[in-house]
Nucleic acid binder design. Sequence first.
DNA 1: GCTATGACAAGGA
DNA 2: CTCCTTGCCATAG
Length: 126
Amino acid sequence: MSKFTDGVINIVKLVPKGKVVSYGQVAVMVGSPRSALQVGWALHIKGEEGITPWWRVVNKDGYISTKCEEHTKNIQKEHLLKEGVEVGKNLKIDMKKFRWFPKYSTLKNLELDEKYIYLLSEKYKI
DNA sequence: GCTATGACAAGGA
DNA sequence: CTCCTTGCCATAG
């Protein structure tokens, strides 16, 4: 029940259908820009099947990068395709097209510090 | 408190 | 494209 883990889950739940975010992006949104790794961990541990859309999270290059046996790349791909996200042959997603950037009000609701909001817009260029 | 681990990021060769 | 290094940090044991 750490703030970090819960934050990750909450944010991932905000990702709209048909859009994806990167681990790093979620990390910034939860207030720990250097904890991209833990984002994956949080989803693995706390993610609830059918409730937490873990498949909408990919790595910085837009590649699917799961290693989990129960949540395979293929399963993730299927989920994404079903939602209208184009997944290329090499499990590549066009982040330019499908990256989700939250509204300012959404970020505000997360009680996120201004500096992180600024960091987000800098890093992922809205 | 310490070490090891990891569904990553970023930058370089 | 692949392979490597460094940085970071929550959790597990």
